[in-house]
């Protein structure tokens, strides 16, 4: 679109090392640069341990970077704690248990979501108005939950919980929506339902979205850009035009390529070791 438009997300030189200086040292972020335009729906792919979740956690503020900078909506949030960044970010986790407070009712959970990033005062929760609006929006899910507003959310199925968590994350329009394999723990039918809902909400609200997935099908069908990660770096970046031509096979070939390169790395390392040790 407009090149002068400020990106919604700008990450530059982001580095993170966990357990530095121990044998457990891992470096899931090795100088990541990434810009995401407003309204863009980015799919993040990559093998296990390539740093996808870490990238999302870094943006959300679950930990602070060792080096580098994160800007959200033009604001430098690098030093902001997680709860403060929540005013700009909506999140759905992989684990259906992570996104909701299990012993509290559906209505109470949404009363929390309705105050994301706002001052929480002594107003009644959930308010009458929220209840009415909630009934309407939960009815749209077609899961038959609209009459169960006062049921503990922990008694619902994983699919129902993820759908509700998605609705909660987007109840107040977030500047950025982070989805980390939010359908990975679901059975295929529930996963399809939640993906359809994701597509509907993201498209309707034109949300800037970052979605991690292991499903090539989802990667090809959804979104307008694919970022492929490997060993804490962005390896490939397919734009909307490239992505339109992309098929599942192309992506699989990409992965195969990564795998071969890794084998090469290892054998090269072995060879070097053989020579020098």
């Amino acid at each position: 679109m407009n090149a002068t438009l400020q990106p919604m997300v700008r990450i530059s030189g982001a580095c993170k090392t966990f357990h530095a200086g121990t044998i457990n040292e891992v470096r899931p972020m090795r100088g990541i640069d990434l810009e995401i335009a407003e309204g863009s729906f980015v799919i993040v792919l990559g093998g296990n341990g390539s740093g996808k979740s870490t990238l999302l956690n870094a943006i959300a503020g679950s930990f602070l970077l060792d080096a580098g900078r994160i800007e959200l909506d033009g604001r430098d949030v690098t030093a902001w704690p997680e709860y403060r960044r929540a005013s700009l970010i909506g999140r759905v986790f992989q684990n259906p248990f992570s996104g909701t407070a299990p012993t509290m009712t559906i209505a109470e959970n949404f009363s929390l979501a309705a105050k994301r990033g706002l001052m929480r005062g002594l107003g009644w929760a959930p308010s009458r108005r929220l209840r009415d609006e909630l009934r309407e929006r939960v009815f749209e899910l077609k899961m038959g939950l609209e009459d169960r507003m006062d049921t503990a959310i922990g008694s619902l199925s994983g699919g129902q919980r993820q759908a509700l968590t998605l609705l909660m994350a987007t109840w107040l329009r977030p500047r950025l929506l982070l989805l980390d394999e939010h359908t990975a723990a679901l059975d295929p039918k529930s996963a399809d339902q939640v993906i359809a809902l994701t597509d509907r909400i993201v498209t309707r609200e034109r949300l800037t979205t970052l979605m991690v997935t292991h499903s090539m099908q989802q990667a090809v069908n959804l979104g307008d850009r694919i970022v492929m990660m490997h060993k804490g770096q962005v390896l490939h970046d397919f734009s909307a035009t490239q992505k339109r031509r992309l098929r599942v096979d192309d992506l699989l070939a990409c992965f195969e390529d990564i795998r071969r390169r890794e084998l090469l790395d290892e054998s090269a390392a072995e060879m070097l070791q053989g020579q020098y040790v």
């Binding site: 996104g99 909701t100 407070a101 509290m104 109470e108 009363s111 105050k115 994301r116 909660m168």
Partner: peptide, 20 residues
């Protein structure tokens, strides 16, 4: 209230409360 509900939730699921 909004505040009290958030306090209860933070015992139930702190990760979610931070995210909100």
């Amino acid at each position: 209230t909004d505040l009290g509900t958030a306090m209860r939730a933070s015992g139930d699921n702190p990760q979610m409360v931070e995210a909100l």
